[in-house]
Design a protein around this nucleic acid. Structure first.
Lengths: 196, 196
DNA sequence: CAGATTCCTTAGCGCCCGCTATAGAATGTG
DNA sequence: CACATTCTATAGCGGGCGCTAAGGAATCTG
């Protein structure tokens, strides 16, 4: 082999370890999840974790990327696929009700909840940027609908995007406070009644 | 004096210290606010803090009570004072837009944000209980309106309460992500359009 | 096999956490 | 005044934090 791996091979599955780390960060947030928590739930020792992922911060960054591709990007997908902003937001809110309460993983949205109240301002800002980027996706999709006449010309795109984002974040919080999927679906349908 | 205070008098204002502690907990949350943060911002030493308030947990409990009476109970007040659930929720959302973005204190609602991602499950549960208690206030007020015919008989009171709570919590999160008062007021007006 | 390479295990570093023992300073009572 | 009482300041405890040095273990190449 030209690019044969030399040395002792890693004794754990790196992707599986990322999944375990994601579950921990999702459940308890960035700061409250200690290296000890991570090594325990992954089942490896601290030096193995550091060798494989760099440090806690870099591990979290990787987790956020995986999270986005698996659970977080459904909003961007819907905004791109659905014919109107209304249809996209409807699909997003309904999917959020399902994803936020899926018993296969912790409740709510990790990007929303994992870095509230952290002393690491960098991490907080990184997730805030992701949330605000999503908000801008909403806004530009709404603007597009205004341009085509699908939405009234006097629609405040930013305010409407904020509304959708607020409902999403509220649903995430409610799921962490014990709301069921059906309850969140009712919230979604109710919220959609306010769409212009 | 019969009940005259003996011994050396306290050299700081206990209420002012509570205010400083509230600002710190509000800004950074329960866990990320260290005793060192508190003693620094209050301007006293650790033993003085422990003598006056017991421990970090008890200080936080006191802060939560003061917070509620000053900033948090506006929802309960509106539900009691306004003639209908609709009027109460309208007032609550509009007041939230104002309170959550008041530059005189940290953004958002402390009860919503101060104990997300804490290793102290007791504190998390205490605030969760407060949020859910508020939700039940919404729900019973809505039920009262259903009973009087003010709201349709087939209204799902719990789901509608969840909707109001979700919007409130979303507005809190949005304010922490940088939303302005005007933007939150627009969110409030938009949200009210979905009221039955 | 020898040697290079890479990973794993043990052990522990320095730091900050919540919290407190101790002793001195400032007030009341008699 | 003496003395009890109460607060304050210094200093530091035990413990968990993020992280890592050091050396043995397991795999490659030749």
């Amino acid at each position: 082999m030209v690019t044969g791996q030399r040395g002792r091979p890693r004794s754990f599955d790196r992707d599986a370890a990322l999944d375990k780390a994601m579950a921990a960060f999702w459940e308890r947030g960035y700061e409250a999840t200690s290296i000890s928590d991570l090594t325990t739930s992954i089942g490896i020792s601290a030096p193995s974790l550091y060798a494989a992922f760099g440090d806690k911060r870099k591990l979290f960054d990787e987790v956020v990327v995986v999270y986005g591709s698996r659970y977080g990007d459904f909003a961007a997908v819907a905004l791109a696929e659905e014919p109107t902003a209304r249809a996209a937001v409807g699909r997003i809110l309904r999917e959020a009700a399902e994803v936020y309460t899926d018993p296969a993983h912790p409740p709510g949205c990790m990007v929303i909840s994992a870095a509230t109240n952290t002393t690491s301002e960098e991490v907080a800002q990184a997730l805030r940027d992701r949330r605000n980027a999503n908000l801008e996706l909403f806004e530009s999709r709404i603007r597009a609908d205004i341009a085509t006449g699908e939405l009234p010309a006097d629609t405040d795109a930013r305010a409407l995007a904020r509304y959708a984002g607020a409902v999403l974040q509220g649903m995430s919080q409610q799921s962490r406070d014990g709301a069921t999927r059906k309850e969140l679906e009712a919230v979604a349908e109710r919220a959609l009644l306010a769409w212009p």
